[in-house]
Design a protein around this nucleic acid. Structure first.
Lengths: 105, 105
DNA sequence: ACAATAGTGAAGTCATGGCTTGACTGTTTG
DNA sequence: CAAACAGTCAAGCCATGACTTCACTATTGT
């Protein structure tokens, strides 16, 4: 069910991948420039980028010999929406409960 | 870095665990009632609940022989905030860019 | 043309994660 | 008290995931 969210959440569960997202939030960046501060191989970064691309968080374009990665504008909104929906559902329930308890108190 | 978010995102990356959260968004539920519709063992559910508890999404209380799980009110807000922050950061950057391109167009 | 640069591909390693089974501990209920 | 019930513990299984190395393929600058 919803393999989209599966891959999305799982992708963001990795600290290196979230670090990549953070870096890309500032500006589009090449593979090797992403690898530098993270203490991993460029190969690893390339693999992470593939994962992030597959779940719609990152876009990637290779011009010449350098591949530049950038964030997809609405790539994170499914996550945001999922969390917000659950929270609002819970809040509504708790409000109803508080109301009932208030009436009889 | 931020092992909180690590565990949180990773926890939510599992479909069974998200299904549990969905169920709990409706109402607090016992372990065995959670297990029923999900096609897994109660043992598995107990393990999932432990994970969700450790990352602050779920609260759990055992009275008599039945353990009842419920959602923690702000358990998902870190996720929501993280996603929202990145999105707004990106949007600001893109707005600035559009402005610059507009000026010279 | 040559050397340095930027990335890709295919293996392989090592740890972790989700799940199960089977035995066991408490708690209700007839 | 005995039997059904709700959950827990300890092990172990199997798949996946994050990473590395090494060899290799473009590209770019001298």
């Amino acid at each position: 069910m919803t393999p989209d969210l599966d891959r999305l959440f799982q992708a963001l569960g990795d600290p290196t991948r979230r670090a990549i997202v953070d870096r890309l939030a500032e500006s589009p960046t090449s593979v090797s420039r992403l690898a530098e501060p993270l203490g991993v191989t460029v190969t690893a970064i390339a693999q992470h980028l593939q994962v992030l691309e597959q779940c719609g968080v990152v876009r990637t374009e290779k011009v010449g010999r350098v591949r530049t990665a950038s964030l997809v504008p609405d790539g994170l909104t499914p996550v945001e929406r999922w969390a917000r929906d659950r929270r609002s559902m819970l809040e509504k329930r708790l409000d109803r409960l508080a109301e009932i308890l208030g009436e009889e108190g």
